Amino acid sequence: MATTKLLASVGKAVRIVDFLARSDADGVPLTLIARSLDINKTTAYNTLATLREYTWVEQDEETGYYRLGEGIGPIASYHTHTQRIVDELHPVLVGISRRFNELVHLGRLTGTSIIYLDKVEPDRAIRVVSRIGREAVAARTSLGRALIASSPEGERSVDYFLSDPSLKLAREETIDSLRASLESNIELFPTRGWTQELEENEAGICCVAVPISLPSGGTMAISVSTPTERMPEERRVEFARGIAEEVRMHADSIGVSLFHDIR
């Protein structure tokens, strides 16, 4: 396989565009851009000049600050493949949330983390609070465990997922106890088709998750999260079966399927 040679100039341009997208809409001074991205000021200026030529960046006439320009519009409005799948799966999440009146999440693996792609909140006063786009340690979330357990055998290294640099042990928790919980979920998955976490990601909160196969061949997972008192042991399989039933109801129209039968 040929070695890929990355172009430094393209990389700097992408980093600048990404930085501006996350910055104040009124613009950012050149000095701050260069310092924040650790790019030579002259290089940053020349890169910005090129981006201005293609209207990806514009410069305020009064302040001299740089901000994203109109040329970025088609990219900003582009619906990524992942977002299209998220939109198609949203009715499934709505159905699950209405069925149980609980918080429902959709997530996928990104390295050793799980990222929350979508959610539907219940219509009740006491509920779990969450945020789309948030990342969490996959090893301690039901979503992450569902995706770890359903991944190919060679990609299931427990040590890899426990090496997440953002992993912080809770009080009275040890790496061995977390490992045991993760391994237990992986071992039980083939016989039940779902995973769980019991107050291991957030105190007072329990979750059940089911992985689903996508038309593209990838995998995502759907979870139900509730306060601990609303998820006794006998209720967990009911949540998993409910997720599965809602997925089956939409399977033909979306092209998704359950990764494993629920037992």
Rank of each mutant, 00 (worst) to 15 (best):
A2M: 14
A209P: 08
I212W: 01
P91I: 12
F100Q: 13
A125D: 10
G73R: 09
I186L: 13
T228S: 05
F189S: 02
V237W: 11
I16R: 07
I126Q: 10
P227L: 05
P211R: 00
A13L: 12
S216I: 04
S166G: 15
L143I: 15
A170P: 01
S130I: 06
V86C: 05
L32M: 11
I132R: 08
S216F: 09
I148A: 04
G73N: 09
R248C: 14
F259Y: 03
D252V: 00
S113F: 05
L188M: 15
S216C: 14
V17P: 05
A138H: 03
A49L: 10
S77D: 14
G242T: 10
V86I: 00
S36G: 10
C206W: 01
E246C: 07
E53K: 05
A49N: 11
D123N: 04
A139G: 06
I148E: 10
F259Q: 07
E200H: 03
E238S: 02
G154K: 14
T219R: 15
L178A: 01
H79F: 15
R35I: 02
A8H: 08
T50W: 02
R15N: 13
L182I: 02
G242S: 14
H81N: 10
T110W: 01
H79W: 11
I212Y: 01
T42G: 07
D176Q: 08
S113G: 08
F239S: 04
L178T: 02
E62N: 06
W56A: 02
V158Y: 03
A8Y: 08
V94G: 10
I16M: 11
V247D: 11
G193W: 10
G107A: 11
L30G: 02
A138W: 03
H250Y: 14
E233V: 10
G107P: 12
L37F: 12
D261N: 13
D252A: 05
A221E: 13
E234H: 06
E238L: 13
S150A: 13
A21L: 12
S223P: 13
A180Y: 00
L182C: 08
I39A: 04
V57K: 01
S225W: 02
I96V: 11
R236G: 06
P91V: 13
G95V: 05
E202T: 14
A180S: 10
P165A: 02
A251Y: 00
L48W: 04
R241K: 01
G71D: 09
I186P: 14
T174C: 03
